[in-house]
Amino acid sequence: MEYIFSLELIYLIASVTFILGLKMLGHPETARKGNLIAAFGMTLAIFGTIFLYQGKVQPLIYSLIGAAILIGTIIGWGIAKKVGMTKMPELVSLFNGMGGASAAIIGLIEFSHYVGDQLSIATIIAGLIIGSISFSGSMIAWAKLNGTLKKPIRFPSYNIVNNIILIVILAFGVYITMSGSDSQLYLYLIFFAALAYGVLFVMPIGGADMPVVISLLNSFTGLAAAFAGFLYGNMVMLTGGILVGSAGTILTFAMCDAMNRPLASVIFGAFGEGTAGS
């Protein structure tokens, strides 16, 4: 990737608006302005990326990008404007899942371009796993909050099973990286396994704990974005991703604190909840 000063400058400004925006979101008087500042920085970064890209790009590709952004804006804006107050948390979960899916797709496409470059493959696989978990987990959280999935579904000893599945996925990811394999089969296998894990991870958690789970998945997506940023050496993705990853983690703990529930009992605590209920 060529180094273009004006684009790097835009990314720098965007990164600052993210930090500033997040900071201002933490105070009631400045919160709304903070959100707008971050949105401004994001717009700048997106258009900078498109218009300052060095390299030959077919007009067809430009129109495809334009169409995708246009359709996404109309749908996203429409849903967000229409939704009622009580439906907002589930919408956040839905949008979070979209970001995760986007990160996962980047991994799916880029894998074959980086075969042989172990560090890049490791980055791609990590982003793919985290993005996929975030996507499917957020979809389940969304379905739980809007009432499609009412009761937590718990398989026998799901905690142990889930942890084993996660370890297998991680081990498989390490294997793909180390072996230098270019197998698309492996790639899609790990993609679907991560999707399944996201479902299994959120399924047993009760509806009341969903905001905490969404916050956790939110920081996952941040991490997935950061991995993609690392892959491209793209500073604004790296800063934005890590910032959300770290802020999201702290926010998750703060939310648990506010509910007087340790994080471990939210994620693994379905046992205690079951006995308390009976």
């Binding site: 919160a31 498109i50 949008f95 940023g229 959300v244 990853g245 802020a247 703060a254």
Partner: peptide, 27 residues
């Protein structure tokens, strides 16, 4: 605590920066 949800939502929008990766893939 009242700002937890808006803050989560704002952070959620910021990690949408992953779109830049998607644009780079296309380009």
């Amino acid at each position: 605590a009242v700002l937890h949800t808006p803050l989560m939502s704002g952070a959620n929008a910021i990690h949408g920066v992953v779109i830049i990766g998607a644009i780079l893939v296309m380009l």
